[in-house]
Structure formats: C-alpha cells, structure tokens
Amino acid sequence: MDNHVLSVNNITKRIGKKEIIKGISFRIDKGEVFGFLGPNGAGKSTTLRMIVGLLRPTSGNIAICGHSITKNFIKAMSNVGCIIEEPDLYNYATGMKNLEMLGYMSKNISRKDIMDAVELVGMEKRIGDKVSTYSRGMKQRIGLAQALLHNPKLLVLDEPTNGLDPQGIFEFREMVKDLASEKNISVLVSSHLISEIQLMCSKVSIIKDGLVVKTGAVNDLVSSSEVYWVVDNLEKGKLIMKERFKVNAKIINNRLEAVIGLNQLEMVNASLVNEGLKLKYVNSKSKTLEELFLSLTENQKIT
C-alpha cells in the first residue's frame, strides 16, 4: 500500500502503430503541486487522459490514493477532479444546472456542497445564467467548481490557462495555490508555458517524446547553474570534480565548465584550492527553467 495520492508506474500508450507514451513514471504526494512541462505533442495530454480514465494505458498501471484506475475505477475517480483542456459545459443550461447534473453523478453531494464550490470560485452572482453567456474566464471558474464538487484529493488540470487573459491567469493560479495549501489538495498541472509551472508548482517533470527527461523540485532545477573556473591545471581540476563531486566537467576554451547546484559551489572551490590548484577566476551563470527546458527539448522533430 503506498501513500502517494497519485502513483504512475511505467505507463505506455500505443495509438494505432505509433507509441505515444513510451514509459512514464512519477508520484505525487499530499498537497504537492506537480507540474508537467513539455512542448506541444510531447504526450502531456495523453498521460493526463490516462490518469483520469479517458484513455486506457497499453501497459503499466496508475493508482489514485491506492486504487487502481483500471481495476477500481469508481473508488479511484471519487478522489479525482479534473479539467481536461477546455472547461466544456452544457451551453444550453445554466451554470447551476450544470453543477447540479454533475453533482448527481457523485455520491452524497448536497446543495450546500454545490454552493460552497460556487462561492470558492466566486461565481455566486452569475450562477443562474446560461453557460452560453459566460466569458472564457467564467467558464474556467465553473470548470474548477465542477472539479471540486466532490472534495477530491487530486486535481488534474490540463493546460488550464489556455485562452485566459493575464488577469484570469493570475486569479486562476492564486486559486490553485490556495487549494493546495489550505485544503491540502494535490494538483497535477500540465502546461507548455514555463513561467506558469515556475510560478505554480513545487515539483516538475519535463517530458519529451513520451518520456520523462527530468524530474525535480522547481527550486533545485532553477538554482543549478553553469559555472566555469580558470585554473592552472585543467586536467587535474577535472579529475577532482569527478572523484569528489561526481560532476562531469568539460574543458572548453582553456577553462573548466560544469553544471552544479549553487550550494555546492563553495565546497568545490575550497577543494580545488586545497589540492594546490591556483584558482584565477570563477564565474557562475544561473540557469533559468526556460533554458533548462530548451536545452532538454531541443532538436524536436515531428515523428
């Protein structure tokens, strides 16, 4: 029995002859906001659809709060709320009617639960109007309300800010952050926007061509920096870095270059000096998530 809110184990998905997802695994803990970053067509949406049971994985398994999505769909899904792509609603009905209809689809949802969700997203005033009269931002709010109706432990959001204006994006982001911190809901959010993930998430997986290329805490990923040293003995310096810090340094333009965490930098410098190297110059260039993303996902071809 694992305690993760969501655990995805080596899932693959083949559609037709093409393998879209080639084996993705990750876990989300309670209250964690987990980002899923990748260029368009990397398989973000497909993975998310498998997690919410819209697609059946070709192999591998997914468990939500310990319940397998394929073997125990009902129990697994009662812990998940989601917005997949657009917040699609019945345009011919009012916001309230939409929520009531979806409320009937879960057990024990009272009118008060519905009103609470409406209040949470700040739609009290327009809830009696037809959805066809709503703006994009309002639809997104109702979308969030329907995802939260049954008090899920996991919120899955697929490209949630697509088509929202800057104000809408900001409000939506704050709402999601509040949910995670106040209600202790775990959130899985996918996006191709780096700033989005950087501002919202605590942990991120970067995926490309159906594979996870890197997973880590956003802070770690952002604070790793590209450092170069100018020392008298480059080969020796390279050896020290490899043996003591397991860092693969490169010799470029008569200087030593490596990517290391900023917290390691002082220790590396001290060792170099202790080993008798003459350290002439050290410079570090902080790498942004954007640069990391671009360097990991470059050479993208449509296959």
Binding site: G53, L54, M77, D88, L89, L102, M105
Partner: peptide, 8 residues
C-alpha cells in the same frame, strides 16, 4: 470528458 471522469 466531464461525464466520463466522474465516479460512475
């Protein structure tokens, strides 16, 4: 998508 992702 909305009706097939409920616990039904």
């Amino acid at each position: 998508k909305v009706i097939l992702t409920r616990s039904v």
